[in-house]
Design a binder for these strands. Sequence first.
DNA 1: ATGGAACCGTACGGTACGGTTCGGTCGAGG
DNA 2: CCTCGACCGAACCGTACCGTACGGTTCCAT
Lengths: 216, 216
Amino acid sequence: MPAAAYDIATSRPDAAPEFSPRQQVVLQHALTLLVEGGEKALTTAGLARTASCSKESLYKWFGDRDGLLAAVVAYQASQVQFPSEAGSTADAATFRTHVTAFVEALLGVLFSETSLALNRLSIGQSNTNSNRLGHLLLVRGKHMISSRARTMLESGRRHGLLKFDDAEDAYQVLYGLALRDVHIRLLLGETANAAEQDHKSQAETAVDRFYRLFGA
Amino acid sequence: MPAAAYDIATSRPDAAPEFSPRQQVVLQHALTLLVEGGEKALTTAGLARTASCSKESLYKWFGDRDGLLAAVVAYQASQVQFPSEAGSTADAATFRTHVTAFVEALLGVLFSETSLALNRLSIGQSNTNSNRLGHLLLVRGKHMISSRARTMLESGRRHGLLKFDDAEDAYQVLYGLALRDVHIRLLLGETANAAEQDHKSQAETAVDRFYRLFGA
DNA sequence: ATGGAACCGTACGGTACGGTTCGGTCGAGG
DNA sequence: CCTCGACCGAACCGTACCGTACGGTTCCAT
């Protein structure tokens, strides 16, 4: 019988992937291959050779190649840890520091080579099969981040530090001010210039403009 | 001898592609295939069948498959016509109308299925071969648009309607305010909701926020 | 009319890769 | 020691597709 592929589509989005250590090592190798050479560089034979495992094991663990790709996405998403410093919204200065740190972390994650490689992979596959990877990346990545961002912004609003109607809308503006067109340019293969690599100052100017729009 | 592939990399970025009518028809078919099924759906045999031409002609015209893809990108970029209404910067109201119209046109172009398909294609190939498609899309698409936008914004600054130091920076903020994270979500396969499909009101709110940041 | 260029349709070679199968190895547990 | 399960390495098959070759057709210019 066909081994069931790693069916992440029906699993709970916040459930831990629960990969065995051996599988995590293999997935890390797969991620390296993806970052280096794109999707075409990730072949089952090549991964088996690089990770010193057999193709049989790959198919046993992940079902088929799509399952492998989905597992890679899920694995990397589980590795991303965002600073959970949204707890103490003491005064205005520290809250603004939290927002700036969040934006800086956002830039650090989204502009990393692994994130770019996975976004390229998901985007390239977004109109072939039923678009599992795109949804997977959205639900395990973006939606998690935006959810956390909304709670942070709403916390600021409760404390009278921010002023907006829709938290989702406010977050999207913050996102746009931070990323502008850099993300798409990086996805297309351009390399960020010096200023764009300074995530800290980029975050500060973005938060500055955000406060001019939504500051109380 | 090997037929020279359509070498767009060394051609002048603003040079007209000069495709014959027959070739344009074939490229339009290729674009349709791309929009419908992604890169995997665009095979030389499939295109020859769909466009009722021979594979031999395809290779004669475009050199190889990469040349075909590059030609599709160049062709579509040449089709995009932006409203060139940056001429008369009469008074404040009409200038703001021009900016809003520009943003609306920008949304209309970038959110079209053809643009999304070509961006997906270029992004998916951005780390395989020497990234010709990504650079091609950037230089024939984004850079043209941003160039035009900068001249428009600088015109507004000359007339004392806007206030900024770097036109490129101001344009990027306008871009971020207009697109936010919608572009990447569409690239990943999500469908825009009702509000996001109303490019006119989206452009208005983006321009409104832009003026609150850069209005004189 | 005629020669040639461009083109169409098709068939074929070569290749790369996904997926399967099989024999052999290693280590844990009875 | 024997068994059993997990795994590795390698060989294998089918398929899809790129690139090319070739015969036949259309069209244009001389």
